[in-house]
Design a protein around this nucleic acid. Structure first.
Lengths: 257, 257
DNA sequence: AGAGTGTACCGTACATTGTACGGCTCAGGT
DNA sequence: ACCTGAGCCGTACAATGTACGGTACACTCT
């Protein structure tokens, strides 16, 4: 990155910030909450790249450096943004468990909810997540998503593994979708135009090498989805497969119970 | 990002670069190949953040702007790096198919190979992949990885979906592992020290709220792996589950055959 | 009321980035 | 011997995160 290198972040300070109430207004009404909201609004429309301390300050009509009174730095700001967007994911901690369809229905519900946030806030993919793992909203999310897997006979580690598997799939697929959208957007080209631009060079250059399977499958996929990939299809195909794969484990454990 | 905004990249130019031979040396022996190799070496040890045109040029003992004679910009350079590291993934296009264990063994082999590159070159996760999808090495990789799924009775779209599912899992898990390593590394703290630093603030701040399931499971996982997560375990658990989930689909299709 | 003090606010400065631009310097063709 | 084009590179600039030191206000204490 540019700019002066960030000072080593103090984990305890970050944690306190994460769990703080964020509502004590200062002289000009500036709050952590307001800063985070403004930053999220900006990132939603222009991505994390376009999010700078200056643009956030400008939107709030404050001096750039005033932000640093409330937030230690940009890294911590993105941590807060991350925690924030997961705040309203579930109405209550039993919402997934109350879905019809047992554990399978619950996991499908969880996957869909995660998919929704991820596609609404694609910048999430660029936030390093490890540090925020202990924020209040993330912790509540973890609690909420684990509950429908409890009491099925799975070990604690298995519960965590199963949930992680589903979430990794959703996140990875959403990320691919977001990337596709982004390149498409800032190339300014439609899929069709892009292909017209690429095609002649590609055929020139690929002549001599042979990729029979790749060629056939790639063409089929392209015709079927009118694109190189369809994130929605990847999501459901993968989710179905994963849940199918989880079924024998869970039924065997439940039987032992 | 910093610096002047990158000019809109010309896809055709990128493609030509990707497929070019890269071996025509100039006055001072500078080649695209040499530039890419230097960049990869740098990124391997310091990550993509530390990779700047200046550091690459320095390592090659050339002026910074000389790089631009061979490479249009940083974006295209990372594209080339990406394509490059996938070049030697497989010895030949039938290597996965020749593994024991049929399609399952082949997919396990593929997952492992991908896992190896991803962990050897963690910066891959930060390269936008959509643009490189048509590089020569990536295309060969796609061909190679599709072959073991051919002739099983799956449709073309199903073949692609199955492969994508496996690769998304591997990539997502590797990414999580890389992130864990990175935060651990540049916090300078061991897991133990980190926990000691966090713990008092956390207990102070969590009192009042209750996360029974999350607390129990989180503790179990932590004790079991001595860490918040174990990427290797996540990899095998997920892979097993996914392959189990793929089995009914494939056997039903093969039966029809 | 007056004085003192801490905290919110912010203007300026600086290091670092990607790369546009224009000049220099050679190798090779005529 | 000269010309030309390509390889090379020094300088300049816009943008970034944030360190540093100053200013001004709200509050407490006398």
């Amino acid at each position: 990155m540019a700019g002066r290198k960030a000072a080593a972040p103090d984990p305890a300070r970050s944690l306190a910030l994460l769990w703080g109430s964020h509502t004590k207004p200062g002289r000009s009404g500036l709050t952590v909450r307001a800063i985070v909201d403004a930053a999220i609004a900006l990132a939603d429309v222009s991505g994390l790249d376009a999010l700078s301390m200056r643009t956030v300050a400008e939107r709030l009509k404050v001096g750039t450096m005033s932000l640093y009174t409330h937030v230690p730095g940009k890294g911590e700001l993105t941590d807060l943004m991350f925690d924030q967007v997961y705040g309203d994911l579930y109405a209550d901690p039993d919402e997934p468990s109350n879905q019809p369809g047992g554990w399978r229905g619950a996991l499908e519900f969880i996957a869909l909810r995660n998919w929704d946030v991820l596609t609404a806030h694609p910048w999430i993919h660029e936030v390093p997540t490890m540090r925020t793992a202990l924020g209040p909203n993330i912790t509540r999310k973890y609690e909420t998503e684990l509950r429908p897997l409890d009491g099925l006979g799975l070990t604690d580690v298995e519960m965590d593994s199963a949930l992680t598997l589903v979430l990794t799939h959703v996140q990875g697929t959403a990320r691919a979708g977001a990337e596709q959208l982004r390149t498409q957007r800032d190339s300014g080209l439609s899929d069709e135009e892009w292909w017209r631009q690429i095609s002649p060079t590609l055929t020139t250059v690929m002549s001599g090498t042979h990729f029979p399977t790749a060629g056939r499958v790639g063409t089929s996929v392209g015709e079927h989805f009118q694109s190189a990939m369809d994130p929605a299809h990847a999501l459901t195909f993968g989710l179905t497969t994963i849940l199918d794969g989880l079924t024998p484990l869970i039924t065997s454990r439940s039987a032992v119970q």
